[in-house]
Structure formats: C-alpha cells, structure tokens
Nucleic acid binder design. Structure first.
Length: 290
DNA sequence: TAGTGAATAT
DNA sequence: AATATTCACT
C-alpha cells in the first residue's frame, strides 16, 4: 500500500511536496530529496534555506510550548528541536514570524506586552505568557488550581497541506463568533500560536466546537472529526461548556469568557420579562466579591 | 562577546 | 511571502 502510493507519487511528480507526503517511515513525513536532510533542512549548500515544512514547524511549536513563550529563545528552541543542519539564526527567523503571527491573533493583549523587555528580570514581569490566546482576563488573573480554560483556535491554519496564516487565515472582517474553541489544543500543534500538549486518550477530539472546521491539518486528514461520536464524548463536551458557563455566572464581574460580549441591558430586561420577571433589583455598584 | 529581537534585504 | 541577514541592544 505504502509502496504503491510512493510509486504513484514518483510517477506524478518529483516535487518536494509529493516526496514529503509519500515518505518512507510513517513517523517522519519529511523525506530526503537530494540536498535536504530528513527534516527538510538543506545540508549540502553553503547558503542553506530551511524549508519550514509541516513537520518541522510542528517540532518548532512543540519546543516553544515546552519552554513556554517566556523562555522560548532561539538557542533553547534549537536544542529541543534537535534538527540537524538547523541553525539558531534559522530558528530566530522563524520565531520572529511566529511571534508576528501571534501578535496578529492577539492584537490587544500582545500590544500591551510586546516587545519583551530585554532584561531577563523585566521579562519575568510577564510570567507564563500563554502560547495561545485565552480570554483576556485569564492571562493576568490567577485561576483556581487545576482549572484549565480551553484555548482559542481559529479556522484551519493549514489548508490542503499548505501553511496558511496571516490575513488569509484571519481576515480582519472575520467575526470572533466564527472562531472556534478547542478544548484539546494538542490537536492543533501544527498551527501557528497553538499550544502543544499531550493528546487525550481519544485519538481524535470530538467536541462540538470542532464542527465548524477548526481542525488541524493532521486532524483533517487523519480522522473524521465532527460531532461527538458517543454519549460519553457528548457528555464531556457538555461538561466543558457547563464549566465555562458556571464560571461566567458565578463571577459576573469578570469579562465574558470566550471573547463574548455581555448582553445589552435591554435584551436582558426583555428576556427577564419573558420569564415573568418584571422587577430588577438596583445594582450595587462596585461591591462584587473578589 | 554571545545571544536576542526587530528591521531590513533577498 | 518566506527566509536570511544585519543591526542595535543587553
């Protein structure tokens, strides 16, 4: 089967993409094509130009996530990636683009924080800056121990095997409602700005949030994600949603989760009146528990 | 002096 | 547009 696919690939094209996709060992999709080593890094020329393939980028993101953005500097990323031929400069360049992309995703939050203070002591002023976006208040408020908010995703960062980011991926007009929330961020390790964590036991995340298409390249091609496949998954999905809703209700002084805007006073009053509640107690200003 | 992030060049 | 190179800075 694999052999057949490889033969077809060779017949159709000698292009890099095909070689990459049809490779020998299943674990490493990046194949040697003449000048490149097994990671897609050219090794035989003086001027090396790194081809940041899907796999290579995934390694990069994993390294960044492992280090944490705060500690993710080129030399450390390079160490963790363990890719022959890759230089610190290559990583730095890629890291630059990576950060720019993240700033594009998180303009408000990141505008306040970037660039990093160069002094390491100052850097620690921004501890644990998340790799991926969280609702704004999550980044600077302490969460209860063990509480994990789902990460924000976005429409597929990879399309048909082609890296897609920047304005094509996140058009300015795109409403936040169309962004999708992924409780299993690991599945998007190959996407810009997405955190990488060990995947859950299920091979494929199957939460309702994925229905609208926020799936990684891998997810799109390797499994048929969509609606929960069974009642257990459905229950898990509901639990996650319930938890976020509970949090929003129990702490009304916090901004709405998931980037949602609070309902207008009028709509709230309308809804209350529908439910037979016609009188609303006056607001006690500034007296919420913290 | 080495390493960094950002700016600039290719 | 993606990546390399340069530069100012710590």
């Amino acid at each position: 089967m694999v052999l057949k696919a490889r033969v077809i690939c060779l017949l159709i094209s000698r292009s890099k993409d095909c070689l990459n996709d049809c490779g020998g060992d299943a674990g490493n999709p990046i194949k040697v094509s003449g000048l490149k080593n097994s990671h897609g890094v050219k090794v035989n020329r003086k001027k090396m130009k790194v081809d940041w393939t899907h796999e290579l980028h995934k390694k990069f993101v994993q390294a960044v996530e492992q280090l944490g953005v705060d500690q993710a500097i080129p030399s450390r990323i390079l160490e963790l990636m363990k890719v022959e031929g890759l230089t610190r400069h290559n990583v730095a360049s890629h890291l630059q683009k990576y950060r720019m992309h993240r700033r594009h995703i998180l303009p408000r939050e990141d505008d306040r924080r970037w660039p990093y203070p160069r002094n390491p002591a100052q850097r620690s002023y921004y501890p644990h800056k998340p790799v991926m976006a969280y609702p704004p208040y999550h980044s600077n408020q302490t969460l209860p121990a063990g509480q994990v908010y789902p990460a924000w995703g976005s429409p597929s960062s990879y399309s048909a095997g082609v890296q897609m980011w920047g304005p094509h991926c996140y058009p300015a007009w795109q409403p936040t409602e169309s962004w999708h929330w992924n409780p299993y961020p690991a599945m998007n390790a190959d996407a810009w700005g997405c955190p990488v964590m060990p995947p859950p036991h299920t091979a494929c995340p199957s939460f309702p949030q994925n229905v609208s298409g926020f799936q990684s390249f891998d997810a799109m091609h390797n499994c048929s994600c969509g609606m929960p496949h069974n009642s257990l998954e459905l229950q898990q999905a509901e639990e996650v949603i319930d938890e976020v809703v509970r949090e929003a209700i129990s702490k009304p002084w916090l901004p709405m989760p998931l980037g949602l805007k609070p309902p207008s006073t009028d709509s709230v009053l309308t809804e209350l009146s529908k439910q037979g509640i016609s009188t609303v107690p006056p607001r006690i200003n500034g007296s919420h528990p913290r």
